[in-house]
Nucleic acid binder design. Structure first.
Length: 395
DNA sequence: AATGCGGGGAC
DNA sequence: GTCCCAGCATT
């Protein structure tokens, strides 16, 4: 059990290791509260490598909370396109509005206040408070749970909320003792605390400690495959290694099997424009744009009659084959068709922004790519948006 | 406590 | 194929 394990012996070796092995990451160079916040939201359930290309672009386009607060939704979603979990960015914008209204545009240097903001839970509040402000509070994520259960050979199910709560309490006590969250009093029991503080990133011991735990999990005590125990600063302290339990810890209850949904996806276009459609404001891929699609896998004839039923005059149809997209809880098994139709009577752009009754928006293929956020689920078919049908060859 | 919510990399 | 990632909101 972790609560019986001596965590104090781990802190100094961990920080010493982190001094030499911390990765250079964009958000570590200039850890302003806003940049730390953006990075932490992006990093929720998302790997560092996936976040990198998004972070610079996002913070350049929206350099502070005020800019984020007033950004139009389509632009915001476009900046987030492909990152997934799109409610993260919508919640972050709601929080930005609150930060501008209540905190003068600056994130509060207060764990409890951070926790009240939309999209900020225990982990993110702890990460921002410690990394941006040096406040000694823990930031317990999947990495932390893995390295701590392994080092102590704890076989508790890490999916249990109660266990996560215990870890936070334990770490909080470790970080600031019993005298509150004083940023000048991190690891008060540690003899070389001040010496280490002088050496770590931005002289921030609390932030360095939390990041070091996660760094250890991300680069040494890895989730997939064999951990690199020979390079681990805790190799002499690790109970899982001693007892050869590395492969069995952490214990994690299994996820439910995914639901399979069949879909027919259309590249519906006339001689110049292609149809897209805005998804509902709630639920899967909320507010993003998609290729028109219906439930079920249809054949050519079925698609043609449906397109006619929708009020279009098909000229030619071309099958685009099958594609699969896997979400965390759903699988889309899709079949796609390119259907060329005669020009609809009313293009919404021409008709004073009035959408067609079927909700389809006819746009230039270039615009569909550049201006509208279309999730990766449609990538297998979206790539055909700018090819022409019939005898005309690829553009 | 359980469920919904993306996408991709490692094995 | 399986696992899981610097999780959070809602019910």
């Amino acid at each position: 059990m972790l609560k019986d394990y001596d965590l104090k012996q781990l802190v100094s070796p961990l920080l010493q290791w982190f001094l030499n092995h911390a990765r250079v990451l964009p958000w570590r160079e200039k850890p302003t509260p806003y940049r730390v916040w953006v990075s932490e939201i992006m990093l929720q359930q998302t790997r560092v490598e996936a976040v990198k290309p998004y972070f610079e672009r996002f913070t350049t386009a929206l350099p502070d909370a005020k800019a984020l607060a007033v950004c139009p939704e389509d632009e915001l979603l476009k900046l987030w396109e492909g990152l997934g979990y799109y409610n993260r960015v919508r919640n972050m914008q709601k929080a930005a509005v609150e930060v501008v209204e209540n905190y003068g545009g600056q994130l509060p240097a207060d764990y409890e206040k951070l926790l009240k903001l939309k999209g900020i839970g225990h982990y993110t509040a702890g990460a921002v408070a410690s990394i941006a402000y040096g406040i000694p509070v823990p930031a317990v994520d999947g990495n932390v749970l893995r390295v701590l259960t392994r080092v102590s050979a704890d076989d508790t199910d890490i999916m249990k909320q109660s266990f996560r709560n215990e870890m936070e309490k334990l770490l909080e006590k470790l970080m600031h003792g019993a005298d509150g969250r004083n940023e000048k009093n991190v690891f008060p029991w540690m003899e070389d605390a001040d010496d280490l503080r002088a050496k770590v990133y931005h002289q921030n011991l609390a932030g360095a400690f939390n990041q070091a735990l996660m760094e250890l999990g991300a680069t040494i005590c890895v989730p997939n495959g064999a951990p690199l125990c020979t390079e681990c600063p805790w190799k002499d302290f690790c109970e899982a290694k001693k007892q050869e339990l590395i492969g069995q810890i952490p214990v994690k209850s299994k996820a439910k099997p995914r639901k399979i949904e069949k879909k027919t996806v259309l590249i519906l276009r006339d001689d110049e424009k292609v149809a897209i459609r805005k998804r509902p404001a709630k639920g899967l891929l909320a507010g993003l744009y998609e290729l028109p699609n219906v439930e079920g896998n249809m054949g050519q004839e079925e698609v043609l009659s449906m397109v006619k039923e929708m009020g279009y005059a098909p000229i030619r149809i071309q099958p685009l084959g099958e594609a699969k997209h896997i979400f965390s809880h759903i699988e889309w098994h899709m079949t796609g068709y390119a259907v060329r139709v005669e020009e609809p009577e009313m293009h919404p752009q021409v008709q004073c922004e009035k959408n067609r009754a079927d909700g389809l928006l006819f746009v230039e293929a270039e615009d569909a790519k550049e201006k509208y956020a279309i999730p990766s689920a449609f990538a297998a078919y979206a790539k055909y948006m700018n090819i022409l049908l019939g005898n005309e060859k690829k553009a």
